[in-house]
Lab assay of single mutants.
Amino acid sequence: MSIQHFRVALIPFFAAFCLPVFAHPETLVKVKDAEDQLGARVGYIELDLNSGKILESFRPEERFPMMSTFKVLLCGAVLSRVDAGQEQLGRRIHYSQNDLVEYSPVTEKHLTDGMTVRELCSAAITMSDNTAANLLLTTIGGPKELTAFLHNMGDHVTRLDRWEPELNEAIPNDERDTTMPAAMATTLRKLLTGELLTLASRQQLIDWMEADKVAGPLLRSALPAGWFIADKSGAGERGSRGIIAALGPDGKPSRIVVIYTTGSQATMDERNRQIAEIGASLIKHW
């Protein structure tokens, strides 16, 4: 067993022997301040990774656009098919120029040779490549099948209805392509620590998230040296922004954090800054 596999296998073990965790309302004060600064709703939840206990939450059962955070769930569904012998990570998928959609920095470079399922998941999570996500959605049967996968996990809230990039439209009061912070946090925890996926697939999923290259201005910008984070960000229309993450000190994750916002007129930089400040408060009061 590799060191990384050992780390993920012992996530519940280490967490069980940690000192009790206590909620700190100071972080919620910052979440509410972010709402004021952005002029928009902000949803927040913080779960203990081992027990699933909610440590703090704000608007945990209000719907927010998922945006690209759905790509972690998508690759979880792909990995479940791999575990069941219905898919192979090494299978190569070929596609054409007509398949390319807006923001496809990886797939646009491989029109000639195609990409493997493993490479597509890596591109979808680490670079948020939209064509990679659409190609992977095709392998599982489309958005409705991802929703069905989530329902089978016990998540009857999260739903995907459309493809990239239309799913980022974020129309107010439109339930399409949305989740709730509580539902997303619980589902992410199941994917990373539950028995739904094999140990190898859980490790692969967290490795992809740990290698995320496009979430630097968010929670990662607030992390002290030595902290662990595996995350996936999302951005959408109407001032929408979000991030889902597993993080913790001492090089291992111990909490799940989900943050979503929508309806702001603020710039992307300002949305990023507010999420980073929430992260800084979380870490300060850990």
Rank of each mutant, 00 (worst) to 15 (best):
T198Y: 07
E119P: 01
L137G: 04
T178Y: 02
M268I: 15
K71M: 00
E61A: 11
R81W: 14
K232D: 00
K30H: 08
E195D: 15
G52S: 13
D250T: 06
P105L: 12
T261G: 04
N152F: 10
S104R: 04
R162D: 06
A84E: 10
G248A: 04
D129F: 02
D177E: 03
G194C: 08
G239N: 06
T187W: 05
E108C: 15
L47C: 15
S68A: 01
P165V: 07
D113W: 06
E26A: 12
D212N: 15
A148Q: 10
E195S: 15
D269T: 14
R202E: 13
Q37K: 08
L167Y: 01
M184S: 03
W163H: 08
Q274Y: 08
L192I: 07
G248N: 03
L38N: 12
K71T: 02
Q86V: 14
L218V: 05
A133C: 14
N98I: 06
V78F: 05
D129R: 01
A230W: 03
P181Q: 02
V257G: 01
D269M: 06
L79C: 04
I125S: 03
V257C: 07
L146I: 06
L38H: 06
S201M: 15
C75P: 00
R255Q: 04
E166D: 14
D161I: 05
I244N: 00
G216F: 14
D177I: 02
K109A: 08
Q37C: 06
I54E: 14
R202M: 11
R92T: 09
G142Q: 05
P253H: 08
Q274L: 12
T158W: 02
L146G: 04
L197A: 05
N173L: 09
L282M: 13
S80A: 09
R59F: 03
R162N: 12
E277C: 06
V157S: 10
H285T: 08
Q88F: 15
R273M: 11
N272F: 02
G85Y: 06
V258G: 09
T187Y: 04
I283Q: 12
F149R: 14
N98V: 07
T139K: 14
T262P: 02
A276V: 13
G90V: 10
I206L: 10
T187G: 10
I229V: 14
M127I: 12
V82T: 11
Q86D: 13
W208Y: 12
T138R: 15
T147P: 04
I275V: 13
H24V: 09
A123N: 05
G263Y: 06
R220D: 02
L73W: 04
G142S: 11
L191D: 03
A124F: 02
V257R: 00
S201H: 15
R81L: 08
K284M: 06
E35K: 03
F58W: 14
G142Y: 03
R189V: 07
V42W: 13
M180S: 13
G142E: 08
R271V: 12
A225K: 14
E61R: 08
Y260R: 00
K213F: 07
Y103R: 04
W163I: 06
D161S: 08
G263K: 14
P181L: 03
V101L: 08
R92G: 10
V101S: 08
V31D: 00
G234E: 03
W286K: 02
I259H: 00
K30V: 08
F70L: 10
A132D: 02
I125R: 01
H110Y: 15
K144H: 14
L137C: 07
A185E: 00
A183Q: 14
E169H: 12
L74E: 04
D99E: 08
I45E: 04
R162F: 03
D48I: 04
F70T: 13
R91P: 01
H110K: 09
R241A: 04
H94T: 08
A211R: 14
G234W: 01
W227V: 00
P65M: 00
Q274C: 10
H24T: 09
A123C: 09
H24A: 09
L160T: 13
N130A: 02
T112P: 13
S122C: 11
L205F: 05
E56P: 01
H151D: 10
S201E: 01
L49Y: 13
K252H: 07
S233D: 00
E195R: 13
L218D: 03
G263F: 08
R159F: 12
G114M: 04
A211T: 10
L100S: 04
H156Q: 09
R118D: 10
A222W: 07
V157C: 08
V157W: 12
V31G: 01
R81S: 06
S80R: 12
A235C: 04
V117T: 08
G114R: 04
K30D: 04
M268C: 14
L191M: 12
Q86P: 14
L135R: 04
A266R: 10
I93K: 04
A266F: 11
G76S: 08
K232P: 00
K109C: 11
E164Q: 00
E270L: 08
T193K: 14
D129P: 00
K284P: 04
D269F: 11
T126I: 07
M66D: 01
R255H: 11
D155R: 01
S122N: 12
I244S: 04
L120V: 05
A133I: 03
I256F: 10
K232C: 01
A133Q: 01
N98M: 06
S104E: 01
F70R: 02
T112K: 14
V29K: 14
L100V: 12
Q86A: 09
L218G: 04
A280I: 14
S240A: 08
M127H: 08
T126C: 07
S104V: 04
C75L: 05
G251P: 10
G194H: 11
K71Q: 00
P143Y: 03
R162I: 00
G114I: 03
N134V: 03
L247C: 09
I243E: 03
A246M: 10
Q204K: 07
T267M: 12
D177L: 01
L218K: 03
L146V: 07
A215E: 05
Q265A: 08
L120E: 00
N130L: 01
I140M: 07
L74G: 03
S68W: 01
T262A: 09
I256V: 14
E277I: 08
I229C: 10
L197G: 05
T198M: 10
D48M: 05
R159C: 13
E35P: 01
L188N: 02
P105S: 09
S233G: 10
L47G: 03
G154P: 05
A246N: 13
D212L: 02
H285A: 09
V157R: 08
F149M: 14
P224H: 13
D269Q: 14
K213P: 04
D129C: 02
D113L: 13
I93D: 00
S254R: 11
R241E: 03
L79D: 00
R159G: 05
T126D: 09
G242M: 00
T193Y: 10
R189G: 09
L89E: 08
R189F: 15
T179C: 05
A276L: 12
Y44I: 06
P25Q: 14
E164V: 00
P143K: 04
P143C: 11
A183Y: 15
G90H: 15
R159S: 11
A148M: 07
M268E: 10
I243Q: 03
T27I: 14
Y95C: 03
S122D: 15
L89C: 05
T193L: 12
S201P: 03
N152T: 14
M66K: 00
G242L: 02
P217R: 12
N173Q: 09
P217D: 14
T139D: 15
S128G: 03
V82L: 08
L55P: 01
Q274G: 11
D99S: 09
L28P: 05
P253D: 14
A40S: 12
P181D: 00
D99W: 14
L49M: 14
G248T: 01
I45A: 15
G39S: 09
I243T: 04
D269N: 12
I259E: 01
E237V: 11
R159I: 15
G85A: 07
D33G: 07
T126Q: 09
L282A: 12
G216Y: 06
Q265E: 07
R92I: 11
Q97R: 12
A84G: 10
T187F: 07
